[in-house]
Design a protein around this nucleic acid. Structure first.
Lengths: 145, 145
DNA sequence: TAAATAAAAGATAAAAAAGTCTTTTATTAT
DNA sequence: ATAATAAAAGACTTTTTTATCTTTTATTTA
């Protein structure tokens, strides 16, 4: 596996996709999202339900319904998406899985990991979804398999 | 989850433990290792079989047998352990799981991830198991749950 | 208000990861 | 040679992750 779980990869890609498609108050349906980011539709539905409950994305049912993001949700850092799905295990805790690992009783990788965690956290927290969105709008970046 | 799989966490901790205990040509048995790193014994046995096949650790059967490391295996970078268990997914490939992601067709996190991957890889490749071992010998670092 | 639409929710299923237990094989010491 | 030891190998179980399919609920439009 990579750094994120597969579920989290889908989550991030879908959030980018939704942001990209709904800037002007439009909404986008699950089928279109799943197609746009090459993910299994029903599995993604579960993920988006979750993100919706947690306020990461917005949704409405019925005709003309779908998922969307407003100014507030667009401002959120990507870290919020990652934390909603994978939790904070990537940012806190011991790299070797030791609960007792601490500054005073460090594991052999403690200090090395601190740097890496900080890098990851900084990058996920310092840029909003909207920021990433800009490159997508410019057609510079891609979300499909 | 953290950065590594649980299997990989056990692998790294056991390698450190074995290195620590077998510097002077001694060997150490699976029971003692499992106890020393707080891991399930039989599960760890599987992991060590694997590491042994791949030449990351050495082993002999029978009385006075056990796992050990020699000068050559101690020189190996930690990256070898990680790669043996978790593969190279942490070092290569797209952070969002996109196979088509590349320099010319990057995903939205492509450049951000490049930096992080390099950090992780550098830290894992630049220090040998023996290096980490030194702090353990000094009693500075800890491997138990 | 009825039909259509689209997400939410629920129930399963398949695959992978993590963990346990038993049997076999290699090695050593008696 | 035989018994004891310890890893290797095999079979199996449990848990978590990933994925699929069906039913329900909310909303809109005609």
């Amino acid at each position: 596996m990579g750094i994120f779980s597969k579920t989290c990869e889908y989550a991030i890609r879908s959030v980018f996709f939704i942001a990209h498609r709904t800037e002007n108050g439009n909404k986008v349906g699950i089928k279109e999202i799943a197609l746009g980011i090459s993910s299994p539709e029903h599995f993604l539905a579960k993920i988006l339900q979750d993100l919706s409950k947690k306020g990461i994305v917005k949704s409405t049912k019925g005709p003309n319904g779908g998922f969307y993001m407003d100014e507030e949700t667009l401002q959120r850092p990507l870290a919020d998406v990652v934390e909603a799905i994978d939790g904070n295990g990537l940012f806190v805790g011991c790299g070797l899985g030791l609960v007792s690992c601490s500054e005073s009783k460090p594991c052999p990788l403690h200090n090395e990991f601190k740097v890496i965690r900080e890098n990851i956290y900084k990058m996920l927290v310092s840029t909003s979804i909207k920021n990433f969105n800009e490159d997508l709008n410019l057609g510079i970046t891609n979300l499909k398999k």
